[in-house]
Design a protein around this nucleic acid. Sequence first.
RNA 1: GGGAUUGUAGCUCAGCUGGGAUGAGCGUUCGCCUCACACGCGAGAGGUCACGGGUUCGAGCCCCGUCAAUCCCACCA
Length: 886
Amino acid sequence: MKEPLAKAYDPHGMEDRIYDKWLKNKYFHAEVRKDKKPFSIVMPPPNITGKLHMGHALDNTMQDILIRFKRMQGYEALWQPGTDHASISTEVKIIEKLKEEGTSKEELGREGFLRRAWAWKDEYGGIIESQLKKLGISCDWDRKRFTMDEGLSDAVNEVFIRLYEKGWIYKGAKMVNWCPVCQTTISDAEVEHETQNSHLWHIKYPVIGTDRFLEFATTRPETMLGDTAVAVNPEDDRYKDLVGKSCMLPFMNREIPIIADEYVDMEFGTGVVKITPSHDPNDFEVGKRHNLEFINIMNDDATINENGGRFAGLTRMEARKRIVDELREMGLLVKIEDYSHEVGIHDRCHTTVEPLVKQQWFVKMEDLIKPAVSGVKNKDIKLIPPRMEKLYFNWTDHIRDWCISRQLWWGHRIPAYYCDACGEIAVGKEKPDKCPKCGAEKFTQDPDVLDTWFSSALWPFSTLGWPKRTPELEYFYPTSVLVTGYDIIFFWVIRMAFSGYEHMGERPFDAVLFHGLIRDEKNRKMSKSLGNGIDPLDIIDKYGADALRFMLVTGNSPGNDMRFLYDRVEAARNFANKVWNASRFIMMNLDGHSITKPEAADLEDTDKWILNKLFLAEKEITENLEKYELGVASQKIYDFVWDSFCDWYIEMVKPRLYQSGDENSQSAALWTLKTVLLDSLKLLHPYMPFVTEEIYCNLRQELADESLPESIMISSWPIPTDQWVFEKEVFMVEAMKNAVRSIRNMRNEMNVAASKRIDVTVVSENPSVREAFEKESMIFASLISGDKIEIASDKTGISDGAVSCVTQDATIFVPLNELVDLSEEKKRLEKEKARLEKELARSHGMLSNEKFLSKAPASKIQEEKDKLASYEKMMAEVEERIRSCK
RNA sequence: GGGAUUGUAGCUCAGCUGGGAUGAGCGUUCGCCUCACACGCGAGAGGUCACGGGUUCGAGCCCCGUCAAUCCCACCA
């Protein structure tokens, strides 16, 4: 026999060659085709600073599986790729690089810096694309976009202007999160919280005109330099008489009023709070309510400024230490307590965020968010798994206005212009010629850029051409499903949701499929700082992309974190090898034969059995994929291919190929092998695109079948037909399988050498069971290493020395004569009896329960009765066998 | 302070919105280089489905509580 495939599956060399072929043939490309139904996914754009990590690998594998599945199903499947400019991350990286070169952003100036940034993007921005290609993903590279390309920048400006004109974007002085290291504002979503062990400093201020002091506790003593009041609860009897008086602020010698405000909790500490309106969000509100003075005591790098008197120039921490020391000397420090509390830190650089009052641009969220909330509530957008709705609503319910301006250079510059003469603001795509207010002609554009998520929020429609009404937008929007991690729900998913409703009047996607995080073998998050990340490219290099892909989506469910285990990659690789070798076997046997579809009558029971299994697999796998249950589907493919097809059917088919000499039987077997293989490859293709393509192309050549498409990825998804439902044959083959298992078990327990051929007599009173064994006796013999197979309707003539196996459908006798140790045989049967006793007890228990009989559905009761009958029969048989062992 | 998730075989996890846990991989035991595959084949052992209540004819699955682990959110100084 000729060997069309190498002996072992080896992904090396195969994958790049195949990917190039796909690209060359433009199989990934989607067009507007009115005769087909669209299916579309937008790829979460990786950062241009990014390097492929396991998260990307998982995310993109899932999308690719869905896209390939839908493409094969006949949808016009668009997978829209692209990259994100990642404003702050990229800028930070470039600044680092500049520092290495001994220069800086300031030295280059804005224009010079941006030139550098674009050059950087050209150099590094494509790396991730080439890495993604190694995964085999089939996105439409011809359509790739970049958040700062011309069209998308236009969309950003359009949105900004629309929202501004609507009054939903405004500029104002508010308390914002300020990162002193990155020197920019950040949004609430970018603030992480970290528990820090610190102290609670108890301090007292003298009350002017009395000999009393007001004692309070603070976690940030240094902010006292900006105190403009001390507050108590209006109901607090301890301090009622002091409200309206003033305290003397140490160091600053400033008189600050004692005010009453409900915000103060009487139960906490002494019931007194110092108020620093410029440096604390709560105090900011109190300050506004009471018309307090707002004194900013900090520079942008979080050192104390001139408003901090002689502490000016110190860092936050230095100032804290000096102030505490001096208060102690002055006798104003009462005590220091240990205290642990949550501190806001910047998610990029982990610097403690400083709440500051700044003039910034904000998006008003109150109305904008509404459709995004109701959209999810009424399932216009479906979240998978549904529990993600709680996370989603937790954010929308507490949403605050979105601070969108960043004091950075790399990004979309805010389309707002200020009249140099009168300060009038003009928002528009172009710089205005003349100030509408004062007529002056000089304008300066706002120096800030937009939050990077401002542009990604528009991704589902901006990539399709919006604000132009392109045919693509018309056809592919709303997109079908968004695949992403739950960690990005606040940053991105919600913002796409409200942007879609606001600008398109429609949801951006029908469903969001969430996946979890990938953790290392010790269940830790993979992170740069821990250095425990596993490089997907290393895995691909070692095991192949197919193995990695299969491993990533098998055995886990939406939204759940998963652990990365090498064992599992290996198992996936072994599966690829299994498929490879099964194909190799089939192709070796196909050799030279022309395959034609057999007459129904020529199909044997075992053929019908596997076809019926295939039918069920196709039906279920298709349903699972349609419900986005990727892990369940892959498990079913694995089980079908390995267990049903390889371990059973291929073994059952061998004697027909090798020894029968019956041409009709052989040709039916070959056709069935080919048919099941072809469909299996298709079912597996979305998961393991490379190995399936390689086998498919070889198979196609082997078959010389021109009607098969030249690539499996453009072939059609198997449509299960109930022509392949064969109840009777399935029953008979299952009866044979039970017998085979039972006999093999017996052989092992009785220590019958694997090479020893045995004679068996199958006794069954069921004529169709007898018929099945009769018909399949050659296969049966082959599976059990049998020699002579006899079929009988009763036990007459069975020799006493025989070992027996009792199955539901038959009793099988194996005369082992000299080999049989009767006490062993008895022990074996007793074990079987014990098992049956347990089953009988359970079954009896249920069926003697009046309530079960009156309330359970009839079908359930019947099912249970049938089981009982079968157990009783087997029990009688086993008991009889035991008796005969004497 | 709120909320979520997880707790199933030695390990890592599935378990289709209640109906026998023949669940998967790895590991383990026994036997096999059987002409597709040792990245393999056959046969086993191994689980009071965290604990305590409840609903139900029936609960791994639903409800309540407890414990443990993980994570998210939050402006109590």
